[in-house]
Design a protein around this nucleic acid. Structure first.
Lengths: 219, 219
DNA sequence: GCCGAAGTGGAGGATGTTCCTCAACTTCGG
DNA sequence: CCGAAGTTGAGGAACATCCTCCACTTCGGC
């Protein structure tokens, strides 16, 4: 009683589907979720209709392209947890994931949509890992105590936003300011005070605000 | 031979002009340069046509509203230069100007448009002041040597961008991350290295990218 | 080869946004 | 009182994006 007969695609259709996904990867990398399905279609050398036939909504395509890319972030976090020094693990993760987000704006948008339907799963994987990275650095005494794991996504949002704005002239400029932030994260006797930590809702709010809507007009 | 007869406005017209500027101040503060002249008109309780009669382009209105507001930044910088400690002067300027930009998004957009035609003058006033603030802190030994005055606008852009994204849920959230950056700016023996300083062109590029176009369709 | 089902293309309608004009009307003030 | 100055806001022009639709092409089992 499988309601869904999973008829395989015709050979040419399958080829086009793959072309579309490849094109989407490129286009989303360059323009993020703001990219148009028309854009993707042109890049794939395919009519718009074909894209809409294969992926009825932008969400569907985005999910197809990025659900596994997000797993890369998870493995990166796991690797970083294995670092001998907690500080190096944490800052390495910051640097490397920021670089990934800078190179692939679609990945950034996906990561910042983590509480959205499609990506919750990856989100649930990553959050505790980041939490651990922070905890270990706290325990080690290298990370300032008033920085919490909720600061992580906001720092990422802030820094990759800069990456977005400098993409045309200096795609690597964000690294400079990330280093500044990282140096600011170090535990020091005379650090200023950071004020109240953001709430879960604040984080969500900022993340949502940093990503293009991705909504469908269809109802 | 004054080609421009400066006929004074009729009383009611003058009143409307002022209403429009007041409304523009509010609307631009809330939505930045992205605000519409239609928006301004409604807020002023005036027809759109009236706005366009008084200010033929958005540029004209923006200039009327912000050219003196930018002077506030200049005086703030001058005050900060008078601070007894160079570090406190510099960081105070960072904090206070960031707060001004967070409260008034139009001011932010104006400040980030400093190389644009209208605001060059204010720009020419501020740049050397910021330079002095930095130099003094360098001389004092409190500011890390590898941070230059060109980092200032980029830090401001980055932090106020965050302010923009958190405006709805936590308008003050940017302060937390500004503190982080400020702590990162402190001279310390074991600071990481920042990499190459941005060029003048990089700064310009980022600033332009951070502000809505403000272009007119008219030619 | 043939033919029906599967697949394709891309012009174009629907919808939305912003800019700005203009012709009929209102108000001011000498 | 009347002409000049001012006002209004519907609506046209320009643009962007989404997505549909149907005449057409291609596949692949027979």
């Amino acid at each position: 009683m499988t309601g869904t007969e999973v008829r395989p695609l015709r050979r040419d259709a399958q080829r086009n589907r793959e072309r579309i996904i490849a094109a989407a990867r490129e286009v989303f990398a360059a323009r993020g979720f703001a990219a148009t399905l028309d854009d993707v279609a042109h890049h794939a050398g395919v009519g718009v209709g074909t894209v809409y036939r294969r992926f009825p909504t932008k969400e569907a395509l985005v999910e197809a392209v990025f659900s596994d890319r997000l797993e890369d972030l998870v493995t990166l976090a796991e690797e970083s947890l294995a670092a001998p020094s907690a500080w190096d693990g944490l800052t390495g993760f910051l640097r490397r994931s920021a670089r990934m987000h800078a190179v692939d704006r679609g990945l950034r948008d996906a990561a910042l949509s983590m509480d959205e339907h499609h990506f919750v799963q990856a989100g649930e994987h990553i959050v505790p890992l980041v939490e651990q990275l922070m905890d270990r650095a706290h325990a080690e005494g290298t990370l300032r105590p008033d920085a919490g794991f909720r600061d992580f996504p906001i720092i990422m949002a802030m820094v990759t936003d800069l990456a977005r704005h400098s993409a045309e002239c200096r795609p690597d400029l964000f690294e400079r300011y990330l280093e500044l932030v990282i140096d600011g994260l170090r535990a020091r006797p005379d650090n200023g005070s950071l004020g109240t930590e953001p709430s879960e809702a604040d984080v969500r709010g900022v993340m949502r605000e940093c990503v293009p809507p991705l909504e469908s007009r269809r109802r």
